[in-house]
Write a protein that binds this DNA or RNA. Structure first.
Lengths: 256, 256
DNA sequence: TTATCATTGTGTCTTGGTGACACAATGATA
DNA sequence: TATCATTGTGTCACCAAGACACAATGATAA
């Protein structure tokens, strides 16, 4: 199907397969070069970026819709995702945006379910940066990682959605396996610390961090040190998943 | 308008004023006689209870919809409410329930927006029990408080919604003014402690509780003791709202 | 009037977790 | 072989929280 036909069909007939007035937007976090990243789509015909989003099939669980969207943009399967907020401001109006988009594509249409008001449910996902193959959808010209602290212009309230996701990531830090999801299988103590520092947005004492983390018993020390680094080579660790999950029940105890 | 006409109009024309496929359900907590209560509606023609719920007007903020529902069931205005989860299981199907309900009312209808699938957004509210005037809606035969630990049979997944609300109430205890919302203006230390014990579902040491609470500076000691009680009369307190809000920023520090 | 008693109000002691900081070990680089 | 930034481990002081003792209160009963 050509690009225009696909868009046209979506605007004309989408309401036959999707629920109305509801969309899902995903805030997909990754960690790379000591920076927290988020996956964004560049909207066609505009210099604006958007969160990966989509709609809920008529008989689909909303969580499955989020998983489907994640898979389509990253190729990743079976990732823990979590809804965190519904954005329902009537002024967020996708109406103007969608009408403009359709005009840019060159399709004429007077009525469409896409011109109606949408509530959007925000989901977060934490993924291993190195495993992601960013894939744009048919509304987008590009799919790229952006540093969460230097974001481009974004459509609608997507900036808001992202900030809210960031806050809940911080406040849930002690109860979610952010390390397990955002780091590769084996990693060093400084890498883990950098991750926590980035999310908490403050410095941690290296020695106290190590003591605290070791005390939780969530790590297994591997018999292997990082190669090819200047100065003392740090040890590799991996997560002890059983203890990790147990520890998260009671919270890890990091304060903002 | 007669009861049947009202129902009939709602099923036939509701989609002209409300968003489709989305409903709002409210878990309204109160505290009375040392018990945590929740406000429920008895469904007409059935021995089942439901959370107060409703729909979102086409140009209405979802938060305003929740406030409107709360006001209609309790008479209360300007209460802090919070969305906590979207329930989206396709099997939660309001379809069967609504068809049956309409049949019971004695109205014939083949198609209705009310037969479609609904996602439901859960909201919590904490209210002063003594100020509430329970008012049933037109679908309901009664509106009453129930102890959260001895609930009657409930429709759909409303039991689930309530349990989820209870969990989030517990986990947000340190960051929300539950005391201010659930207690009358002036109250004694044992009353406040009972509230916390009820929500946390465990005993607290009386002396440590007092020390901790006093330490937060969220209370103002009044020059007045409770009258007509056996034994030593406890002092009355009220909240120092300014300090309360400040203290909640950093969390109160109660553990489950 | 006075003793009783359950409950409230206040203080002390101990312990465990955390922040601040010292020092030794490592291993590539000069 | 010396240098040096970084990692790994240990110590100390402090504070918050739990456990518990005891005095104060004021209605009730003797």
């Amino acid at each position: 199907m050509s690009f225009e036909k696909e868009i046209s069909a979506h605007f004309a007939k989408g309401h036959e397969i999707y629920l109305r007035n509801i969309s899902v937007d995903c805030v997909i976090f990754g960690f790379h070069e000591n920076e927290l990243k988020v996956l964004l789509l560049k909207v066609k015909y505009a210099d604006l970026w958007a969160l990966p989003g989509g709609f809920i099939l008529k008989e689909e669980h909303m969580d499955d819709a989020a998983q489907r969207i994640l898979k389509n943009r990253t190729g990743l399967d079976n990732i823990f995702m979590q809804q965190f907020h519904v954005f329902s401001n009537p002024e967020r109006s996708t109406k103007a945006i969608n009408k403009q988009f359709l005009k840019n594509v060159g399709v004429e249409m007077k009525e469409s379910w896409m011109f109606e008001r949408f509530l959007s449910v925000g989901y977060t996902a934490l993924v291993d940066f190195s495993l992601v193959q960013p894939i744009p959808d048919s509304f987008s010209a590009a799919c790229e990682w952006h540093n969460v602290h230097s974001l481009p212009g974004m459509i609608l309230d997507h900036r808001d959605i992202l900030e809210t996701a960031l806050k809940q990531l911080q406040s849930n830090l002690n109860y979610h396996p952010v390390g397990y999801n955002l780091l590769p299988e084996k990693f060093t103590m400084p890498e883990l610390q950098k991750l926590y520092e980035t999310i908490l947005n403050r410095q941690l004492d290296r020695r106290n961090f190590q003591r605290k983390i070791i005390g939780t018993r969530i790590l297994k020390k591997l018999n292997e040190t990082k190669k090819g680094v200047a100065h003392k080579a740090p040890n590799y660790y991996k997560f002890d998943l059983k203890n990790y999950r147990k520890a998260l029940q009671g919270g890890l105890g990091f304060e903002l």
